[in-house]
Nucleic acid binder design. Sequence first.
DNA 1: CTGAAAGCGCTTACAG
DNA 2: CTGAAAGCGCTTACAG
Lengths: 353, 353
Amino acid sequence: MSSKARATQIDVARLAGVSQAMVSYVVNGNGAVKIPDETRKRILEAMQTLGYVPNALARGLRSGRTKTIGLVIPDNANPFFAEVARFIENIGFENGFSVILCNSDYDLDKENAHVDVLLAKQVDGVIFCSSGGTSEAQQKLRDGKTPWVTLDHDISGLQTGSVLIDYELGGYLATRHLLDLGHDRIGCITGPTQFSSSTERLDGYRQALHEAGRSVDPTLIVPGDFRIRGGEAAMLALLKLDHPPSAVFAFNDLMAIGAMQGARIHGLQVPAEMSIVGFDDIPLAEALHPTLTTIAQPISEIARVVMMILLGQVQGGAGVPAPKAFNRVVLKPSLVVRASSCAPGPSNPGATG
Amino acid sequence: MSSKARATQIDVARLAGVSQAMVSYVVNGNGAVKIPDETRKRILEAMQTLGYVPNALARGLRSGRTKTIGLVIPDNANPFFAEVARFIENIGFENGFSVILCNSDYDLDKENAHVDVLLAKQVDGVIFCSSGGTSEAQQKLRDGKTPWVTLDHDISGLQTGSVLIDYELGGYLATRHLLDLGHDRIGCITGPTQFSSSTERLDGYRQALHEAGRSVDPTLIVPGDFRIRGGEAAMLALLKLDHPPSAVFAFNDLMAIGAMQGARIHGLQVPAEMSIVGFDDIPLAEALHPTLTTIAQPISEIARVVMMILLGQVQGGAGVPAPKAFNRVVLKPSLVVRASSCAPGPSNPGATG
DNA sequence: CTGAAAGCGCTTACAG
DNA sequence: CTGAAAGCGCTTACAG
C-alpha cells in the first residue's frame, strides 16, 4: 500500500463500479445530485479501502478556491502577534481554512516576497499586518482581486477591508495616565520611526502633553525596535540624560519589559523610582512583577473582526463585497492600570516640582 | 486590468509571439533549454505588461511539488512554540518554502484533522510536534509517503526523521539543581499526564530524588496544563499542603511564571522563600523579575536540525531518504541558573533539616 | 440517477 | 531553438 501512488477518484470509481463524477459528488456532498444510499455506501467503502485522500491542488485549480488564507505579520515571536496568529488560525480552522504564516520581520522586501508567493499559491484571502508605510506588497494587493484585510492604520483611501487600531488614542491614554499621576518628564520609547503605527502613538503622546500645557522635549524620545533588548538599551540611554525621565511609555510590551530591566540595571525600583507603561497587553503583562500597566489592544476582537470581514468577502464569492458597514472598523485600545506605574517619589528628580 | 481574469502563460505566449512552453522555460529557468536573449526579453516584457503571476496550484498539480510544508504544534500562543514557528518559517522562507501553521491545542482530534488537511493540500513535508501519545494523525503520517519529522520523544520505532529532546535529562537537571541547593521538599507541576513529554520529565525528577536517597512524595506532584493560569493554580494547591515544598519545578516556563504569581499571592518571596525552576528558556525568562532559572531547550538548534532533515528528504526527491546519520537526533537541554532559585532560608519549613 | 467530457494552468518529454 | 500535445486530479455543466 505504501508503495502504490496515491489513490485518485478514478481508482475509487473503478473499485466501486461507478463513474468518477459520482465519487466527486459523494466527496463534495453536492446537494443537487441525489445518490442512492447503496451506491454512496459502496463509494465510501472504496475510498476507505484505497485510503483515498482528495487532492486539494486539483480541486483548487478547478474550483478556484483553495480554502487557504495568508497571514502576513512582522514577527511571530512577539507575543502580541503570536496571539493574533493563534486566534486567526483558530477561527480559520473552525471555518475550514488553513493559514500560511508569513513573517515580514519589519522588512518591506520580505513582506513583498511573501505576498508574491501567497498570490501565486492562489490563497482565497490575505490578512496583511503591514510593517508600515505604503509598500509594493500593499500595491499588489490593492491591484489584485484577492480579498484582503489590513491591520494597518494607513487610511489613505484603502479600497479594502481594514481593521484599524486607534494608536493615537493609545498613545494619548498612556501619556495622560502618567501626567495624571504627577509625572512631568515622561520618556518615550518608540518603534522604528518610519512606521505609521509608531508616529501615531507619538502623536498621541504629543497631544496629551500639549493638552496639559507641557512642551515636548525631543531628548526624551528615543527609538526602539519593538524588541526586549531595544527597550532595555533605550531605557539606559534615557537614564544617561542630564534630566532623566521619572516615567517611560514604551510603544509595546516587549520594550516595556526591556525598559524594566534597564531601570533595574541602573538600580532603580519600578515603579517607586521609575514608572513604566507598555502597549499591547500581552498575556504575560499581568504575570510580570510588578504587573505591567499597559494599553490593551483587543486581540481576540481584532482577530474576530478581521476574519469576519475576510471570510465574508471570500465566501460571498468573487466580486461580491462584504456589507459596507463591515469594511472599515476602528477598534479602541484601553488603559489597563497595574503595578508598574505610580506617582513619582519625592526624591525623584523627574517629579513635578 | 482589475476587471480581467488573471493572465496565464498562454496569454503571455500570445503577446510575446512564442509558444507556451517557452514561457514556462523562462519562468522556471530550465537550464536544459537555451532561449535567445531577445526572445527571453520579449517574454519577460509580456509577463510584466500582463502582470503575470504563475499559478502554483497548476504547477504543483503537474510537478508534484508544492513548496509548502505543514507545521503542527500544540499552541502558537506559548512563547516556546511561537519561537519554534518563527525559526521554522524563517528557514522555510530562505529555502523557498511556505509554512501552513496548525495549532492542535493539545487535542488529538484537532491534530488529526490538521494532518488530513495538510495531506490533502499535498504539502511537501510535515513537522509534527505531537501532543503526545500515539495518535491517529501519527499513524497516517507513518503510513503515507509524505516526508515528516517529529519533535516528539516517542521513540517507539519511528520510521521517520525525529528530533528528540532528552526531557528526562531536563527533569533530572532541574531537580538535581534544587537538591544541590539544599531543598528537601521539591514540588513538581507537570503537564497533562497523558503526554510522554510530561512523564519523561517526571522520570528525571524521580531519578534525581532516588539518586539523592530521597523518596518521592506523590502529594508534591500536581498536574498543570502548560499555561500560566494552570501554574498559578498548581502552586496555590501546593501551598495548601500540610508540608508545602520550599522549591518547585514547573514543566514549562509559562507555568513557572504562574507559579511565581501563586507564591506572591501567598505572600512568599521568590526565591528567598520559594525557589522556582522552569523549562524551555523562552526569551522572556531572563526578562522576568526575578530572572527565571530554567532548563533551556536549544530552540534555534531544534528548528535548524528539523528543517535540515525535512528539506533533505523533500529535496532529495521521492524515495530518497536523508543521510541515515541525520534521521534521529537527540538534543540535550541544559540548566540555566538565574535568580529564581537559591538555598532555602532557615525559617523555611521545606529546608533540609 | 448516471456517464462521458471539457477544462482549470501548468510542466515536460517528444518531434521538428 | 521552437511548437504541439499529453496529462496532473478534480468539478461541473451537459446529455442520456
